[in-house]
Design a protein around this nucleic acid. Structure first.
Length: 452
RNA sequence: GGUGGGAUGGCCGAGCGGUUAGGUCGCGGACUGCAAAUCCGCUUACAGCGGUUCAACUCCGCUUCCCACCUCCA
């Protein structure tokens, strides 16, 4: 299995550092609001990643953090006049509900930042002791990027020849260097009741430190894989590396993977443009979790994905087609042609998660299965879906589902009409059944009726 | 200004120096009383201009346009 490593900018074989287990840290949500589908592009990408690792016979220990203290959560909680913990709990719960809707496999650990303040303080103390972090007059602690030689190696930025961006021109902090970032932020008025005691006084952790502290706590000082959206590459992940490697003197993460952004109708998703959707927005419009999942995963994770409602419509039809084919599939030893498609599927998945290519193999299986009128390919579908997570295997149950008496009666009448070749009557009854929400299809074996 | 990624058929979206991506839509055929489903075929896609090559959508250069990051956005 090969994946693209942002650190080396090359495709590399992914193999575990220890045993057969890949240790994976995925940057999770800041729980100040409902997550939007752009966020979920990252989470579905990470889900595909862990499923692909498992597909290849390895196990995964995944840690996904919940950022439950930062500017936005504090602002939200204080504005709502509720405790930070209560405020974030709402969005934590919502997040887990959303993950289920998208059929995202749960991570092994979901550490919350506020539950790991001591670990963060310990890490910061280590950095202060080493003289790589310093306390400013206001009680904040900063990381001195100049003192960490490898700074910029992930983002491939040469800071000696870098002009200062417009956004960091404002000199509102008491920092030695504009590039220095906060490890600990001193308490200020707007924080209200939020704050923890520390060796540097009351305050709260900087954003980056939680990921370094929590990932190392659960996965070790050096672990296999760390992922997130491309926007996290710099500064967030760069800073995580700096904090961790400066503290331990060891390599922090071997492989970094980043997914590209989602656009909506060709434009960047933003509230002001009115093209900002949460998962809940789409569910309310009648789209299902797996239709949304299909759209989110059916583009290579490193390519920008253009989200459009027409893509959801395509997804719905594509999934129906897959479902119909799966309903024809049976248990047993798979025929050679099906095994070939699984090989193609695996090759695509193992080529840096080429999911569009994997879907092409799936559809080749669909076509052949239909052409053969079925086959012992259920296991092949199952193995493909182990990675994709979009197939509905309940088709046979849906078929045998009890029909209302009213519909049964109409079907009997229609069968009689058809026996007498009374086509007008047959069509009339078909329409009547359709009006009740059921679809009738005719074949050599007679009528089949399913709920629409 | 720096760094990185893009422009593919109506739409979505892979890919590679020469061999069908795939989905969806549309058209034709088979099957069917009709329909639906299914299968087969078709609509001769690779931003523009040069270059390298026996051969370029794929490599190189230039042009146009787009996107992301450049200090707390997945």
């Amino acid at each position: 299995m090969k994946v693209y490593n942002s650190l080396t900018r090359r495709n590399e074989e992914l193999s575990p550092l220890v045993g057969n287990e890949i240790r994976l840290y995925t940057c999770g949500p800041t729980v100040y609001n409902f997550a939007h589908i752009g966020n979920f592009r990252a989470y579905t990408f990470e889900d595909i990643l862990r499923r692909a690792i498992e597909f290849n016979g390895m196990t995964v220990k995944q840690v996904m953090n919940l950022t439950d203290v930062d500017d936005k959560t504090i602002r939200g909680a204080n504005a709502a006049k509720v405790a930070l913990r209560d405020y974030t709990q709402t969005y934590k719960d919502a997040f887990f509900e959303d993950l289920k809707k998208l059929n995202i496999e749960p991570a092994e650990v979901y550490p919350a930042a506020t539950d790991h303040i001591p670990e963060m303080i310990a890490l910061i103390e280590k950095l202060v002791e080493q003289g790589i972090a310093y306390k400013s007059d206001d009680g904040s602690v900063y990381f001195s990027v100049r003192k960490f030689p490898g700074y910029g190696k992930l983002a491939h930025i040469d800071f000696d020849h870098q002009q200062t961006g417009a956004r960091c021109a404002a000199d509102e902090y008491d920092k030695e260097n504009v590039g220095d970032f906060a490890l600990w932020k001193a308490w200020e008025e707007s924080d209200g009741p939020v704050g923890w005691d520390s060796p540097w006084g009351r305050g709260r952790p900087g954003w980056h430190i939680e990921c370094s502290a929590m990932s190392m706590k659960y996965l070790g000082q050096t672990f296999d894989l760390h992922t997130g959206g491309i926007d996290n590459l710099f500064p967030h992940h760069e800073n995580e590396i700096a904090q961790a490697e400066a503290a331990t003197g060891r390599e922090f993460v071997r492989t970094w993977m980043h997914c590209a952004h989602l656009r909506v109708n060709g434009e960047k998703m933003s509230k002001s443009a009115g093209n900002f959707f949460t998962l809940r927005d789409l569910l309310e419009k009648g789209w299902t979790g797996r239709e949304i999942r299909y759209v989110l995963i059916n583009a290579h994770y490193r390519s920008g994905l253009n989200f459009a409602f027409s893509a959801l419509e395509d997804a719905r039809k594509s999934l129906e087609r897959i479902d119909r084919s799966v309903a024809l599939a049976t248990e047993g030893e798979a025929p050679g042609w099906a095994k070939k498609h699984l090989e193609d599927f695996a090759a695509a998945v193992n080529d840096d998660l080429n999911i569009p290519g994997a879907f092409a193999a799936l559809f080749a299986l669909v076509r052949d299965t239909n052409a053969h009128g079925g086959g012992a390919v259920l296991d092949i579908f199952r193995r493909m879906d182990k990675v994709l997570g979009v197939i509905f295997f309940g088709q046979s149950e849906k078929k045998s589902e009890d029909l209302p008496d009213e519909v049964k009666k109409l079907l009997d009448e229609r069968a009689k009409a058809r026996a007498g070749k009374n086509w007008a009557e047959s069509d009339r009854i078909r329409n009547e059944i359709a009006a009740l929400g059921y679809a009738v299809k005719d074949s050599k074996d007679g009528q089949t009726c399913t709920r629409k």
